[in-house]
Every structure is written in structure tokens, then in C-alpha cells.
Computed example of a mutant assay.
Amino acid sequence: MNARTEPAEAEPATPARPPIVRELLLVAGLFLVYKFGRQLATGHTGEAFRNADRVWDVERWLHIPGEGAVQSLLLHGDTLVRVANTYYATVHFPATAAFLIWLFLRRPEHYVWARRVLAAVTAAALVLHLLFPLAPPRMLTAAGMIDTAQAYGPSVYGPPQTDHLSNQFAAMPSLHFGWALMVAIGLIVATRSRLRWLWLLHPLLTLLVIVGTANHYWLDALGAAALLGIALAVIHAPLRTATTAGRSTRQLAPAEEQVLVGAAR
């Protein structure tokens, strides 16, 4: 008796990638808006320090461990603190760019989702930077912390009075942490490896670095996580497509064929 075979189901087409020129222009535009928006918040020195005192008092009221505890760990060796400063200075943008490029090439449907989430979080953060300028703990006397980048190098910031390339009073929320957390979440959602949860080490390491180098308070990271949570609740991740799910199924196809052939004989 011949085995009855069913016609093969047509495999869904892979989602089309967005036009690359449009995406490059869009990402470049978002970066320019980000840089311009940070410049709008400069010059609010007095307000930034008053807000820093408030954040510091709130953290103590909440009994959050002081940021100095993390910094003291970094200061055990010059090499460790320089590695932390280098991580802060060099990983933020390249890691996020590499994440978006990989999604664009390998998971286009997840790329669109991740780009929208990052844009929403960044836009909301810029608004908060304008409404709530905040001096980082390295500038706050009450924190008792040192500016590790200035003391050990490398540093991405100059003196606040003459630094016209960045807004050093944009500590709340921390986009360093918010972007790192989105990179980890995006890779966890877009991949199926059993080891994909290790990507959470990226935001964890970023958190220790931004706090230990006295560039951010704990509450800056919590604020970024809250913004990201809201964005993820509104902008839903793409469902796992049949094409993605079918990859693991196709890997078992030879074994399943042997079983079907044996049953048909």
C-alpha cells in the first residue's frame, strides 16, 4: 500500500527588509535629534544640582545602597577602573548599532520593532532631560564619589562649562542602561538559543559601569527601565512566525521521514 501524501504547505515568505537608504537616513536623523535635544538642556546648572540633591535624598529615603559601594570595588585596581571607563566610553553606541544591523540583516521583522522601541525610549528620555536636568553623582559633593574618567582615563567629557558636544546634566534617565537592556531583550526575543539569556549580562555590566564610574544614580537606571517597559507594552514584538518555528522542525525532517516511510511499508 502506498503511503498517502499531502501536498507540502507553502512556506511563508520571509518579511521584506525596509529600504536600507531610508533606514540609514532615519537612524541618522534620530541621532541628530538626540544630539540637538541634549544641547537644548545645557545651561541649567543650578536646577541640575538641586535635582541631584533631591535624587540623592530619595535614594537614601528608599534605603538604596550608595553608588559609592560599586565604585569602591572598581578602585581596587587601576586596570579595572580604566576598563570600566573604556566600556562606558566605547560600548554604548557600537553595541546598539551592531544589534540593529544584525536584526536588519537576519530578523527584519524584529528590526522594525526594535528600532521603534529605541526611538520611543530615546524621544521620551530627551523630554525628561529637558524637564528634569540632573547632575551626575561625580559632580555631587554629597555623593562623595570621584570622577573616575578624569582621574584614570579615558574620558569622553570635558569641563561642563566648555563642553559643547554633550549635555552632562542629562543623567535621568540613563540611555546607556535603557539601550543596553533593549539590546538584551531584543536578542532574547529574536533568537532561540538556550544561551540567549546570557545577553542580560550586557545591561547588568552596563549598570555596574555607569554607577561605578559615578556617571549615573541607581534611579537613573530604574527610570530608563520604566520607560522601556512602557514602550514594550505599547509597541508589541512580532509573533514567532511559521518560518522561524519551521527551522527547528526542518532540522528533524530526515528522522521523521524515516519513521513515515517505515510506517508506510
Rank of each mutant, 00 (worst) to 15 (best):
E11Y: 04
G68I: 06
P65E: 04
L62Y: 03
Y111C: 01
R38T: 13
L260P: 00
A8E: 14
S72N: 15
A149W: 00
W113A: 04
F99M: 13
P94K: 10
L204F: 14
N2Q: 14
R106G: 00
A120D: 09
Y87R: 00
S72W: 07
H110R: 09
Y217G: 05
A48H: 02
T249C: 08
F104T: 00
F31W: 14
L175A: 07
P154D: 07
V33Y: 07
V183L: 13
E257C: 07
V189G: 00
P19T: 03
M139W: 13
A97N: 04
R240T: 11
A124C: 08
H110T: 04
E9S: 10
R194I: 03
G158W: 06
H129R: 01
T45W: 11
E6A: 13
P12R: 08
D57V: 08
G77V: 01
L175D: 06
L204N: 01
I101T: 13
H202C: 01
L131D: 02
L80V: 14
Q168C: 02
G77P: 01
E9N: 05
V117T: 09
A143D: 08
Q161H: 10
A3W: 02
R22A: 10
A3I: 12
W61P: 00
G77C: 10
V183E: 08
T213M: 03
A123Q: 07
L219K: 03
Y157R: 13
A190L: 03
Y152R: 07
E47I: 12
R38V: 02
A98G: 14
R196C: 03
R138S: 07
G212K: 06
T141N: 08
H44R: 15
A170D: 12
N51S: 09
F36A: 15
V117A: 09
V156C: 00
A190R: 04
M182E: 14
V156P: 03
A242E: 14
G262S: 12
N85Y: 05
A225C: 05
R115K: 12
N85C: 12
E59C: 07
V27D: 02
L32R: 12
S248Q: 13
V183F: 05
R247P: 00
W113K: 04
L175S: 08
A224I: 04
A52R: 03
G158I: 02
I64F: 08
E11F: 09
